[in-house]
């Protein structure tokens, strides 16, 4: 990714993040430096297919809890995390629907 492309992306992501990035040059520069660190992963090969979202013991439980049939109506469905992604913490104020 060249500097121009990165600048454009930073501007777009800044808007998505609801942050005024373009007015802060040192922030933009440091973000570029961090991406050089992230790009070290380009050289990594032979990775396992499995993606670890949670450390194992909890991952099993999370998947059980968030199976659709286990989600109580009282839980805010639009905040339930997907299995694959980061998420907004669900407060899980679970009430007994029975």
């Amino acid at each position: 990714m060249d500097g121009k492309e990165l600048n454009t992306l930073l501007s777009v992501v800044g808007q998505l993040s609801r942050l005024a990035v373009s007015s802060n040059e040192s922030l933009a520069q440091s973000i570029k430096a961090v991406f050089k660190l992230f790009d070290q992963l380009d050289s990594v090969t032979d990775l396992p297919e499995e993606e670890m979202v949670y450390p194992t013991s909890s991952q099993i439980r999370i998947q059980e809890v968030f199976e659709p049939e286990n989600i109580p109506q009282s839980c805010l469905l639009d905040q339930v995390p997907s299995k694959n992604g980061p998420f907004i913490e669900c407060p899980l104020i679970v009430e007994d629907d029975s």
Partner: peptide
């Protein structure tokens, strides 16, 4: 958000949305 978050937090929010 620009006034309320410090620079390190802003950096991480942007990096996170980027990745």
């Amino acid at each position: 958000r620009t006034e309320g978050f410090g620079e390190e937090v802003q950096r991480r929010i942007i990096l996170g949305n980027f990745v």
